[in-house]
Design a protein around this nucleic acid. Structure first.
Lengths: 264, 264
DNA sequence: CGAATATTTGAGGCCTATCAAAGTGAGTGG
DNA sequence: CCACTCACTTTGATAGGCCTCAAATATTCG
């Protein structure tokens, strides 16, 4: 896997669809707050979308953070290293989510950001973001909402890492992804799953070997089906039960649910 | 230990010093952003301070959250329970810090809040808080800053729980407390330590027995001194080294450092 | 098709949990 | 002022979940 470093200078991709609507899904499930006007203002403030290959560092711990980065396509992770070389992934940013909301106020980044897949990123310079917040309450609300959801997800991660078994952690992760990717349908769910078992291990505070054993067991029990980079959950309710998963902390409100349906 | 439940109706304490300045230290180390005017506006918007005994739930998971709660005296924790009855403390609120900043937007609380000591709490109704944010950029900045610091602390907790040994977790906690309580002096530190070893265990994802062994070992190595509910760190640099602690994630900026000195 | 990467499986060991009980200290009531 | 109680701390012995090391198998990609 590539381990390059993404230059601080954002260079435009070959894509010409800057003003079409790469941000149409921005912050959608986390808020659904943006009006058409606000979306337009936001798109005008962002730099052109940039296509980045998998396994690239968008930024490293300790670097200056000038831009708020928004994922349009692909999966991105935030991570931290221990002195001994261990890696802990502290959060994922999925399409429509913000990587580093704290860049709104913090000059210095205190975690690394790396792409897990080929990714399209939209950068929003801090100053422009702060100006937008002043002018558009909807954008302010959406960004604030996003920060609080990040917080809630981190809080649940602390519970998982501190008090849940490997099996429960894995189940909880899959249940959460199913909600955040908005792919649940009745009691089943299916989505592309681009993470390597080692990546999952770094996310759950385990080793790749143990993640493998847990995934195998879930397979045997018929609670997941994997293959061809896909993940299927044949019985979401059962998985939620064994994982102790309750989606209310994600605060997916009805308003945003309705908007999503309208857009389909 | 008491396990009462704090009524949703905030009743004023017998204290008469509402307008003197219980909020003088509010958000100080996290920002130092508040002007005298803003502090005054904030104090006028809050409900009278309330004195609450140790071991009381200020709120429980799932309850409606109407107020942002600010700690003026004492220690408070946020916590989550697993299905099996395990408890994980997901964060501490020390004097001057906010318990539930997400109440600004979320109607429902997704964690419990409990006092660890006798505590003085100041409540700020959501609507008033939102109005203050509109009118005073300093207050908006301070609250936003506070949310991002919460986030940074949670992120480090994820690293600790996921990838650090029991010893490192304990050391990291003590180093962090030393900074947040603003009690470091040269290479030493000393502060009241009101947590039982079981509370520390619930914070670090360990058992009380193991926390005891780790604390004993730190004592033997001369890295901590305990007794009479006090915690002393004779060699902060050495403790930071073994814990892998680097305070930059707390974003204690120079401006707030200067203000603090002026107020002494 | 070949090389690199990722998954799978096995064996053994360690860190932390669990269970148990003794020791300590603070607060209470007689 | 002293028994008494309750909560907390301390210590020991054993067990278990997950890690580490190792190697075989499967998959991806140039």
């Amino acid at each position: 896997m590539v381990d390059g470093h993404f230059s601080a200078q954002l260079s435009p991709s070959t894509s010409t669809e800057h003003l079409s609507s790469p941000l149409a899904n921005l912050l959608l499930w986390t808020s659904g707050h943006l009006s058409a006007d606000e979306l337009y203002a936001l798109e005008n403030a962002t730099l052109p979308p940039t296509l980045i290959s998998a396994g690239t560092d968008l930024a490293r711990e300790g670097e200056r953070a000038e831009n708020v980065l928004i994922v349009t396509k692909g999966w991105v992770c935030r991570y931290l290293m221990t002195g001994g070389g261990g890696r802990q992934i502290t959060g994922l940013s999925l399409p429509g989510e913000v990587c580093n909301i704290d860049a709104l106020m913090f000059q210095q980044l205190d975690y690394g950001i790396r792409t897990l897949t080929e990714t399209t990123i939209v950068a929003l310079p801090r100053r422009r973001a702060l100006a937008l917040i002043q002018q558009h309450t909807g954008i302010a609300n959406a960004l604030t909402w996003s920060a609080f959801v990040d917080n809630a997800i981190l809080t649940r991660s602390v519970l998982s890492l501190g008090r849940r078994s490997a099996m429960e952690r894995l189940g909880h992760l899959l249940c959460e992804l199913s909600v955040r990717l908005e792919v649940e349908n009745a009691n089943t769910s299916s989505f592309t799953f681009p993470m390597t078992q080692e990546t999952v291990a770094d996310l759950l505070g385990l080793t790749a070997v143990h993640v493998n054993r847990m995934m195998r067991q879930l397979s045997i029990e018929g609670l997941i089906k994997t293959g061809d980079r896909m993940m299927s959950l044949p019985d979401v309710a059962a998985l939620r039960r064994i994982a102790g998963f309750d989606p209310s902390y994600l605060h997916v409100d009805h308003q945003s649910e309705i908007r999503k349906r309208e857009m389909r």
